[in-house]
């Protein structure tokens, strides 16, 4: 493979219209940087989005792009991938787009394991419609549409993706550039569907959305980096660890006291039980790859079937049109 395009070559001449200070700028820079590292020609990328702040993304990527309908990007991306399995197809979506109006499409795309990469920007708020509660807003949050506080409970996007049988699920943070780029590169190389939840700040309607992770103190206290084959340790100098509590849950342990009890992260576990427990944690907040397992991608399965059918074909179009019971009128 020759030299791929540079990060700058992935930028378009369109003025970026996100609010100054929006987390989307950092994500855009990371995506452009990660794409440049993949060594894939620009024309092979397709970025598909729905509706919302994040969904303006395709206009700022100098690749093929399709800004579609609210919540509907996974379907469009599926059609693209089934038609052109050689393309690198990315969906950019938000918590409202992917988890409210488009929740059904998202889950089915993951269930099918179609080879699309979904970047879910989660800022726990509707930005483009000016600040209403979203499916990931915390219970009790006051917004213009919930003046008495959010009455229901939020989705956990990673848990939802795991429940749908996703074969690659990761989480990162808008401003953790190096980590985010690594997740994007790994998603790009995955066969089948991949989802990255990107925790993102909305400095206008939900400032400090993930301050517990992004603040200096929070980062040290609350972030649990998931690394395959490494113990689940977090806190200053990895002074805290996670273990199974024996009752189907996780418990915090002191690695110094019981090093043998600390769970070792296995992103390739065929069973997603432990990743699911991790996905439901509020503190610490795990970042990294929850799950990365191998399964046939839908587009490959369909392509192989079609090729097999072509090889087995025992007649041309004329025979097909006539069918088995034709008769001839002289």
């Amino acid at each position: 493979m020759g030299r791929g395009p540079t990060r700058k070559e992935f930028a378009t001449d369109q003025d970026v219209r996100w609010c100054p200070g929006c987390g989307d700028y950092a994500i855009l820079a990371s995506v452009q940087t990660a794409f440049a590292k993949l060594g894939v020609p620009r024309e092979k990328f397709v970025v598909v989005s729905g509706i919302g702040c994040s969904s303006r993304f395709p206009y700022y990527m100098n690749t093929y792009g399709f800004h579609t309908l609210h919540g509907r990007a996974p379907g469009v991306a599926t059609g693209i991938k089934l038609t052109r399995p050689d393309l690198s197809v990315w969906v950019v979506t938000g918590d409202g787009d992917a988890l409210a109006i488009g929740a059904g499409h998202l889950l089915h795309a993951l269930r099918r394991n179609v080879g699309i990469r979904i970047l879910l920007f989660n800022n726990r708020i509707y930005g483009l419609t000016k600040g209403q509660a979203s499916p990931t807003s915390e219970t009790g949050k006051t917004t213009p549409s919930t003046p008495g506080g959010v009455a229901d409970r939020p989705f956990r996007p990673v848990a939802l993706a795991l429940a749908a049988g996703a074969t690659f699920v990761a989480r990162s943070v808008d401003r953790f550039g190096a980590h985010l780029q690594e997740m994007i590169e790994r998603a790009a190389r995955h066969e089948g569907a991949a989802l990255i939840e990107i925790l993102q700040n909305c400095n206008i309607f939900n400032d400090g959305a993930f301050a517990e992770v992004t603040g200096r103190a929070g980062r040290e206290e609350n972030v649990l980096y998931l690394e395959h084959g490494r113990p689940l340790r977090f806190g200053p100098d990895g002074s805290r660890g996670l273990a199974l509590d024996g009752a189907g849950g996780l418990v915090e342990v002191d690695p110094g006291q019981a090093p043998g009890r600390v769970l070792v992260h296995d992103e390739r576990a065929p069973d997603s039980a432990v990743p699911d427990l991790l996905a439901r944690l509020d503190a610490p907040v795990p970042l990294g790859v929850f799950r990365d397992v191998s399964a046939p991608a839908l587009e490959q399965v369909l392509r192989e079937r079609r090729e097999a059918a072509r090889r087995a074909r025992d007649g041309g179009l004329a025979e097909l049109l006539a069918g088995p019971n034709a008769w001839t009128v002289p």
Partner: peptide, 21 residues
């Protein structure tokens, strides 16, 4: 190629994606 989608909207979306591709 045939694709049974999760709903009518997903179906037309995939069809439109195929045409874009």
């Amino acid at each position: 190629t045939t694709f049974q989608a999760e709903d009518e909207i997903g179906a037309v979306g995939a069809a439109l994606g195929a045409s874009f591709a």
